[in-house]
Every structure is written in C-alpha cells, then in structure tokens.
C-alpha cells in the first residue's frame, strides 16, 4: 500500500520544500520507492533543491493535461536509486491543478509501485495547497518557532481535518506530524523564539522532529543537494532522525540544547 504524505505549513518560507526534499530522500535511502511532487505550480523550486533543474523536460501540469506520460515526466534522482521527482510547471498557475487531474497522477504514481508519494505543498490555503493535501494519508506540518507560523499551522491542521478526502469521506483522519524547522536554541533562551513546549501545547500533535537552524541548509539548497545527504551536518542528522521516527523508530531528540559554542569549546571540542 502506497502512502501519500503532504508536507504543508500555511506560511511561506518555513522550509516545506527543504523538508520535502530531505524526507523523500531519507525514505528512499531506507529502500522505499519514493516520489516527491512539487505542487507549487508557477513558483517551482523543488527541482532546484533536488539538483535536477537541468533535467526537467515535462512537468506535473503536462501530465495532468495528457501532454506527457507520468514515466516521461518523473525524473530519477542520480544519487539515491529509489527516488523520483515530479517537478511543477513554471509557466502555469495553480488553477491548472484540478482535483481529477491530481487524483489521476497520484493513482498513476501508486500504480508504478511507489511506496511513498511526498507532496510538497505551496504556501497559503488556496487551490494548490488544498490539492496537495486533499488526497493525503499523512501530513507533515512544518512550523518555525514563531507565533505567526504556529498560528498558520494550526489553521492548516483545521483544514486537514475538514477538507481532506479522508475527512469528507469519513475515513480515519489524516495522521498528523509536527516538524519544527529553523529551531535556534539561543534565540529560544533569549525569548526571541517560541520554546518547543509552547508550540507543542498549542498544536497538540506528535512531534516528528526538530531541525536546528543552520547555514549548511542554505548551502546545501544552493548546491542542489538535500541536506539529509550531509551526514555531518546537524540539520541533516535531524532529518534522518525524523525519517526514522516517521517509520516508527524511537530516536532521542538531539539538537535541542544550547548549541552556541564558546571560544574554548570550539578549540577543544
């Protein structure tokens, strides 16, 4: 049984695409055949972060419109064998994503034998975002430790409970996971950012992972390599932990403490 996972947040710029790329890569590294689909039609980014922008010939909208087959449009990742990317169209807008079209593509991906389909949602609560979440079995809600991001995530959780197919058909609800990104322990300590407990208290869903704020994420994005492939970076390890927890493994939460290193700690270790 293949599972559809939506990576969503409501708010923009919190790390949805970065997280989609790393979670999909992580699942594929574990041997699950995984496809990651960019729903951000018109502002396509996933292909950049996955480093396959030069190999895009056909896109999601081409497949919906029947201009290309799914097999033609899916781009095989060169680093991880079980991973494929379906890029968004840059020249269309989100109205191109019809419910029937999206359903056809998702069913097509399932038929190709994929275990997981990761849907990278655009920001907002409009057509693109609604289509990305409608068919989801699981949802990863990406949240930054700040009030507006938490508020928007809360809103998205409400929409998932009422407007997803599972909700409309009265099936088991979409399984929700919280992924906190850009977590900066120093700024939490100084009160500039919300603490983990505050976020959990408001959103009240299981925590999948906490990704520490780190410059390596930006470097990796610019280089077109999902951060999870950086095995020495804290953010990469945190994503690997999140993938493990997603698959039901127990992992301690690392990178929650004060990671500011003093001069001597830098010198000695």
């Amino acid at each position: 049984m293949s599972k559809i996972i939506v990576v969503t947040s409501g708010k923009g710029g919190v790390g949805k695409t970065t997280s989609s790329a790393s979670l999909a890569t992580g699942l594929a590294q574990r041997g699950y055949k995984t496809a990651v689909i960019d729903f951000d039609v018109g502002l396509r980014n996933l292909d950049l972060i996955m480093g396959c922008e030069r190999r895009v010939v056909y896109d999601f909208v081409n497949v919906i419109n029947g201009d290309a087959t799914l097999k033609q449009a899916l781009i095989k990742d060169k680093r991880v064998p079980d991973l494929s990317i379906l890029p968004a169209s840059q020249t269309r807008d989100k109205q191109a994503l019809t419910q029937e079209g999206v359903q056809q593509v998702l069913e097509g991906v399932k038929e190709l034998g994929y275990d997981y389909v990761v849907c990278d949602s655009p920001a907002g609560i409009e057509q693109g975002a609604l289509m990305a979440m409608y068919f989801a079995d699981e949802a990863v809600v990406v949240t930054n430790p700040e009030v507006s991001s938490v508020r928007d995530s809360d809103r998205i959780l409400g929409i998932l409970q009422s407007k997803s197919r599972r909700a409309e058909e009265g099936q088991d609800p979409v399984r929700e996971h919280l992924l906190i990104t850009r977590y900066d322990a120093n700024r939490v300590n100084t009160g500039d950012m919300l603490a983990l407990d505050d976020i959990l208290e408001i959103l009240a869903i299981p925590l999948l992972g906490v990704i520490p704020e780190s410059e390596t994420v930006l470097t990796a994005s610019n280089a077109g390599a999902p951060i999870i492939l950086e095995e020495k970076a804290a953010a990469g390890l945190a994503y690997a932990d999140a993938v493990a927890r997603f698959l039901g493994e127990e992992r301690p939460y690392r990178f929650l403490g004060n990671n500011k290193k003093g001069f001597f700690r830098k010198l000695f270790g």
Binding site: R151, D152, D154, R155, L157, G158, I159, Q161, S162, A204
Partner: peptide, 8 residues
C-alpha cells in the same frame, strides 16, 4: 474531542 483549530 479534537482540538478546535484557528479558523474553525
């Protein structure tokens, strides 16, 4: 018995 979310 479920949390009532923002916007609901």
């Amino acid at each position: 018995d479920k949390p009532v979310r923002s916007g609901q």
